[in-house]
Write a protein that binds this DNA or RNA. Sequence first.
DNA 1: TCTGGAAGGACCC
DNA 2: CCCCAGGGTCCTTCCACC
Length: 363
Amino acid sequence: MIQIFQIIEEASRGSKFYNHKKQRQEKIDERIRRMLELKDSFTPEQVSRAEAQMDALTAQLEQSRDLSRFIVHVDMDAFYAAVEMRDRPELRDVPMAVGSNSMLSTSNYAARKFGVRAAMPGFIGRKLCPQLVIVPCDFDKYRAASQLVQQVMARYDPDFSMVSLDEGYLDITDRVATEMDGDTGDQSEDEMAQRLVREMRAEICRLTRLTASAGIAANGMLAKICSDQNKPDGQFFLPRERRAVLDFLRELPVRKVSGIGNVLSQQLAALEVTRCGELLERRGLVRLLFSECIQLSLLRAGLGADPPGVGRDEDSHQKSVSTETTFAGHSRTPRSCRSYWESCVSSCPKTSAARACADGLSR
DNA sequence: TCTGGAAGGACCC
DNA sequence: CCCCAGGGTCCTTCCACC
């Protein structure tokens, strides 16, 4: 464990990336210092007033808490790597990762034992694990596999939504209900939901020869956390009861919640908040130190009260197209930039509008 | 004081 | 050997302008 950290540290130290990261971290530290100063200036009355305001918000959220749905989050296990291993059996038992020397997208479980992870540059992966096999991304293949997964998901909820090639949400409430009607046994709805998800994962596996994990809960936020609980090739069910949800969240690291990332979790840690339950205990400080938007999402994280309808809302289509590459140090001439830019606009496959735009710009 | 964009971040996979 | 991506979304901040 320590060695992994040391190797990564050693490989990184002194690089531009490392220096940049250090600078950014210093800025974050500075922000946190200022935040703590502000915190120390609050009077107990201020804090308790803030708590009362949060309690009002909590009451609202509790009011609209919806525990009636079965939301499922399906997450394919080490997706890109699993596809490659399926198609190339010789990779099955060796540590491998998908990506390039500069960046890895995923690694298989054998490679993870060495500390090789997604979002790690390939050359560091090789330092951690000299035998590591790195295979290039083949998105066409992943898209094809994803299509098959989606075929299965559509049978359980025609209105399912994908968030990426390897993960998506379903609302199987209706499906559970119809299944209960036709069922003569004495299964509960909860059992039925779990049975259906087990069945769905088995079908995915049969059709794609890839394994999926799933989480079942009252809303998307919780389902997503749940799908991570029994990974790989497992599922986790969180009962749709307020008490069960709060118990589940109390000890859950805030970092597990989608939307609480590196920076926010550092800020929270400075306030001695590392678990979702502590978000509720320290709600006064949350109120006084964060933007309204963040207050709301943190309160939601503490309560497990997510607005219903993940991804299936009116305007959940893609809103932009973009392309980017990182230039090597020596190619940053005006000429090469211009030719790169021209190749970007002319190769944009999406819309004729984009082409028209390119014509307009390249004059 | 409000408002709309641009730019800059945070976050996700 | 090559030495830290590239595709997105959403929120905040800042500035011009009215």
